[in-house]
Write a protein that binds this DNA or RNA. Sequence first.
RNA 1: GCGCCCAUAGCUCAGCUGGAUAGAGCGUUGGACUACGAAUCCAAAGGCCCCAGGUUCGAUUCCUGGUGGGCGCGCCA
Length: 556
Amino acid sequence: MKDRLQTLLGEAVRACIEKKLIEAEAVPCIEINIPKDAGHGDYASNVAMVLASRAKGKMPPRRIAEIISKNISSGDDVLAKVEIAGPGFMNFFIRENVWSTLLRDVDELGDRYGASHSGKGKKIHLEFVSANPTGPLHIGHARGAVVGDVIASILEASGYSVFCEYYINDTGNQMNNLGKSVLFRYLELLGEDVEFPESCYQGDYIRDLAKEIISREGDRYRNINQEETIRIFTEYAAREILKGIKDDLMAFGVVFDNYFSEKDLYKDDGVAKLLAALEKSKFIYNDGETVWFRTTAFGDEKDRVVIRKSGEPTYFAADIAYHQNKYGRSFDELIDVWGADHHGYIPRMVACIEALGHEKESLKIVLVQLVSLLRDGKPVAMSTRAGEFVTLKEVIDEVGKDAARYNFLMRRSDSHLDFDLELAKRQSSENPVYYVQYAHARICSIMRNADERGYKMPAYDEVDLSFLTLPEEINLIKTISRLPEVLEGAALSLEPHRLTFYLNDFAALFHSYYNKHKVLSDDEGKSTARLFLAKSILTVLGNALRILGVSAPEKM
RNA sequence: GCGCCCAUAGCUCAGCUGGAUAGAGCGUUGGACUACGAAUCCAAAGGCCCCAGGUUCGAUUCCUGGUGGGCGCGCCA
């Protein structure tokens, strides 16, 4: 509906300019929004004021609005009236009987309702989670996982083609540290008198891995070359931990198209070759000891090391190669979802994108703030190194997938989030997941009732929707019609929380309607029309919940 | 010290990229089940949108400077 109005208004403005009724160099961007106050119409636009300011006050905005409104094509019978209000707003009133026609789309499209083609099939690479395989995923990773997963769904629904990838940082010091940690636990379990270093991973899962090795291979590593053993243990531990990570993500409803190993970047000297190529373009230089990337050429505050004095490449070096690799797989756009504590890393990453000859805008970075875990309002201490943390698995087991996911989506990603375990599993009004799911279950219950009473669910053409005249009903239909724009906006801004807020508002409208009016009554025509509306609501709730990866129960 | 993010009701947060009288949930107070599910609804109270300037028809939103908080500033990842 909004789109329709937009073209209508756009044509009117163009006509006015061509006929020289309004002085303007070009047709401005037509903005249409939904006013908060119903008295200001169903939609409103500020074009007249925009045009007035461009024309340098030669013509008052209200006058411009008048001219435009007179030139709106009368061939379209959607508009009841156009009012000019305030400093020059144009308020559009849609004919009451037009709204119900919007339900045709819902009926015809079913579970595809809300989807669009605005992404035009653009190929997007989406990287998220990417946690080191040095320990199980904890609650901090969980938010990034859900945000990434839902962004993927939203983009898919908006007509993009999305490829989800988990980047495994399986090289470097941290990994070595992991192997060493397992070795120390191993020796400890075999009765050796060793002191477990503080710098090593303290979590119990390390001991479990060591036990596993002992039960399978005994003490054969006790007296052989330690460096070699660490290498073997590192590989073993990383593989096992990654397996656990994949299982946990699966249980959380997060699925990747690919897990990309950092190790693969070093095959065939890939990283070295890339750096050599960049050296030719002068973005890489060697000061005799270390190799630097000239990120300052693109606004970073200092140049960054890519090859250490020791000859080892840095994490950044691999990351450059990784991003180049992504572009090599012909994606149109890259999206990285990062923990907000990595924000300082953005300038150098963007610099490297530019140095590689790609558009700065082709890489988008979504920052996800870390989560403070609470239990009954009291903070739960967390530290990966010390092994004190609540794992993702524990959260899923305790509060459930639906509540956990929904809780992570209730705020903008870049805003701090308190996650209270007790609150999240409480089945009460304090917990918004159930509010939305309850609406869904309630409608299902109505359907069961209708079925018992012998109602058949009508198709769009068989139902007389002129029975839907209550303001609540019109409002519900209007909100239903907003789903496509909400999804599109969420896709454009990469903000999944918009969908959550929409769902809450929508469920509220339904609950209110439900409490005031009966769907099923003695009036058969009215009942059928309302039943049809209820089914449309069910479709929208179901579609939106599916995108969020939250289940839509029929009973609860 | 420098950089990034944040500051909106008692609390937790939205505010659609600059729009009209700033919203929601929780909490508080008072009401609604012999009607399709009360995990629901209705009503009330609650505000210097941190402060001071600036940009313009118009600012919670953009700019500058403060104040208060979070994070980052490794040849860690």
